[in-house]
Design a protein around this nucleic acid. Structure first.
Lengths: 233, 233
DNA sequence: TCAGGCTAACTGACTAGTCAGTACAAAAGC
DNA sequence: GCTTTTGTACTGACTAGTCAGTTAGCCTGA
């Protein structure tokens, strides 16, 4: 029943995935074929896309390989031809996604400094969440799991993404580097954007993007903690 | 083999769950027996505790009823005697947890205003996460799922908890009420505390609690976005 | 013609949920 | 006082169904 599958068209189906510019950056960059970041094509991509869509609502263990095969329009055997196990399928999916995120953040920051850097990072992360909410949901639910076979590599990439924030923070607020708290503050900012971004997409999708970005930046601008600034520690 | 079970001792086993003060508040308050917030005792509590511990690392679909039964030290049948299905077991667990959170936040805010209110809320949420990381992880992974039978009631309680933040924000920053963005800002602050709190517990548990609270408040104090305040919209 | 890519049917381990039965305590009958 | 009944809480072997992973073979293009 090959009729179910698109006839190997859509091989480079990059919808909603990585913006053209960053895609170019990825291909031109030093990321070789075979690394987790190399963009899969054809069947492999169809499988990854289907997996992501299903996992976003049903979670990882709630998603069955049979469903993935059906959604991707391939036979179950193809899943195991392209990925050695369910675990590895999800590992590749997450590593690809989080890896791309780190790239995007680095690109967004460029050589901006201080406030501009943070604003650019928040905006880029928000856009990424908006363009790929499925991955955002998946990240939110997997990032603190400690029983996965792939946790080590996922943690590493997660750390890479957070580091982009942490560096910008350390620069904007040098005393946080002394206290070693830039990592925590990075998490804090990351969590703010992730949670507000998902709130937006899930509960108030009609709201314009800029309003959401403004609200997040507002909540990070101390307006909430108005009056006197906290005593510098 | 009745020997396996404790002889109906440990009936009111409240370890790590709700602090004594808040427990008193719950019992004295208007929350009647039979509502989701009523604290289960005996077998039911043992089952809920076991479920939470397992679900924190393995997720909901990754947790089997057989495991829960074993960990709780009861027979599988007892699970179904006390809860009509796996779904309802997890529903009760989540509703109990999120409901208690809303109570705690309301109590923490008291009639504080402005900056003090926000600081109290952030601190209370952080403490709650620290005293029950399992539930925090579970919340982080379930709060945006849209395929659960219980999503409606969970969303309602979630909204209740966020509203406590939103109200404090609306008061501290009246113009956000006009824009209808206090909900988003509440999510943002909530996400910041949740993510940073879990980062702390999972990756740097040796750090003192106050340092974490300070880092979070710092990230919400505009230090990051130093220099000029953003133009009020 | 043959190898790489894929398929369809199959397998066995596991899992949610069931149900006949046990334990035991508090009425109810005598 | 003692048996018998009733009700509640719990048990664990069992069933029907599901799911990850396997395998033998088909198809197509080089």
């Amino acid at each position: 029943m090959t009729g179910l599958r698109e006839p190997s068209t859509g091989a480079i189906d990059s919808r909603l995935w990585v913006s053209g510019a960053v895609l170019a950056l990825l291909l031109v960059g030093s990321i070789a074929k075979g690394t987790p970041m190399a963009r899969a094509t054809g069947t492999k991509r169809a499988i990854l896309d289907a997996t992501l869509e299903l996992a976003a609502t049903k979670g990882i263990s709630g998603t069955t390989m049979d469903e993935v095969a059906e959604r991707a329009g391939v036979a179950k055997g193809s899943l195991y031809y392209n990925f050695s196990s369910k675990d590895r399928l999800f590992e590749e999916l997450l590593l690809e996604g989080v890896g791309a995120l780190a790239e995007i953040l680095r690109a967004a920051r460029g050589d901006l400094r201080g406030r501009a850097a943070i604003e650019a990072l928040v905006g880029a992360l928000l856009d990424r969440i908006a363009s790929n909410p499925a991955l955002a949901k998946l990240m939110a639910s997997e990032i603190f799991r400690t029983d996965r076979t792939w946790q080590k590599s996922l943690f590493a990439l997660r750390h890479e993404a957070l580091t982009v924030f942490a560096e910008a923070i350390a620069e904007a607020k040098p005393e946080s580097r002394d206290h070693g708290t830039c990592g925590l503050m990075a998490s804090s900012v990351f969590g703010a954007v992730l949670m507000a971004g998902l709130e937006w997409l899930v509960f108030e999708p009609e709201r314009p993007r800029d309003e959401v970005a403004a609200a997040i930046l507002d909540s990070l601008s101390g307006g909430l903690l108005g009056g006197d600034r906290p005593a510098p520690r």
